[in-house]
């Protein structure tokens, strides 16, 4: 119980710190935010200027603005978008589903690919591992925007198998998912392979072999689980890559979503939306790291007593 409470408090602290950093960073932006509301070349009278400042709370002292910001953060209300004249929460909620779809699809595909490749190349022979390592290096080094453009060129323009842009159907999710998942899968495979080889040297592997367990079973039933542990520690990186990747992938494939709205907000200096996105991604990051702590206990029984999580 105590452990859970500590986790929640430290989770809230991380979100607060990230949001505060974002607040401070946004104070450094040169120029009058009023022009971000009305457009940079609009003519604004003195009264209109004052009204807009009052409307968005920009006339308050910085400390009051910050306290308001924290209060809005706690209730997840960020005020209205400068550009879209809608509450930020509404804007983000509207764009959330396409991004969640994409992220979930990639979250399923990437580990599947990684486990598949790890198993397929875990045999005694060396050359499949070497080949896979070379492929991983190439995939990891490939920027996702180029990967997406090439997939579009081949499968949509040349072969005509898949739609060029968002149609709402499952077919239009295929290429974006591959683009997002492939680089992640390559990194996961690298980590899992190392974990698998390390696990095979552990005493439990020797014991299992001595009991007469066949080598394949030692690998898949005992060692593979262990290779998942180091991969799990990368969950924070994984989430960040998904969110950052969404910005790129949604732009390559002209998909709606949080990534697209983020880039647009940065281009338009739509600060409430930017603050909302920062808070959202910090919340997601923290939620994932709590989830991973629970998953640890599921994967590794030795950790169950320490974290206080019961076997599920």
């Amino acid at each position: 119980m105590r452990g859970v409470l500590t986790r929640l408090v430290s989770a809230a602290l991380v979100v607060w710190a990230a949001a505060t950093c974002a607040f401070l960073v946004l104070q450094l932006i040169p120029g009058d935010p009023v022009y971000a509301v009305v457009g940079s070349d609009a003519l604004v009278s003195e009264e209109q200027h004052e009204r807009i400042r009052a409307e968005y709370g920009l006339d308050q002292p910085l400390v009051v603005q910050y306290l308001n910001y924290v209060a809005r953060l706690a209730t997840f209300r960020f005020g209205d978008s400068y550009q879209l004249q809608q509450p930020v929460a509404t804007v983000l909620a509207d764009q959330l589903w396409p991004t969640v779809q994409l992220a979930l699809a990639a979250t399923v595909l990437a580990p599947l690919l990684a486990v598949g490749v790890t198993v397929a190349t875990s045999g005694r022979r060396n050359w499949p591992r070497r080949l896979s390592a070379a492929v991983e290096l190439v995939v990891v080094s490939t920027p996702s925007f180029w990967l997406g453009i090439m997939l579009l060129t081949i499968f949509s323009f040349r072969l005509g198998w898949l739609p060029v842009s968002e149609t709402g159907g499952v077919a239009s999710l295929v290429l974006p998912t591959i683009t997002l998942a492939l680089p992640i899968a390559a990194v996961l495979t690298q980590v899992m392979r190392e974990g698998l080889l390390a696990a095979l040297d552990q005493p439990f592997a020797v014991t299992a072999r001595a009991r007469g367990v066949p080598e394949t079973a030692v690998r898949y039933r005992h060692a593979l689980r262990h290779s998942a542990l180091p991969a799990l520690t990368m969950a924070g990186w994984f989430t960040g890559t998904l969110l950052g990747g969404a910005v790129i992938v949604e732009n390559v494939f002209a998909r709606p979503g949080i990534g697209r709205i983020t880039l647009q907000a940065v281009g338009d200096r739509d600060l409430p939306v930017v603050q909302g996105v920062v808070a959202l991604s910090a919340v997601v990051f923290v939620a994932v790291s709590v989830l991973v702590d629970v998953l640890y206990a599921v994967v590794d029984p030795r950790l169950r007593r320490k974290t206080g999580v019961q076997a599920i």
Binding site: A17, I29, G236, T241, V277
Partner: peptide, 22 residues
């Protein structure tokens, strides 16, 4: 170090976008 932790909680690309804003 807590500032570093907080910044590491944001995706690198998002952090870069915040800097471009400035």
């Amino acid at each position: 170090m807590r500032v570093a932790d907080a910044l590491l909680a944001l995706p690198g690309l998002l952090l870069a976008l915040l800097v471009v804003l400035i």
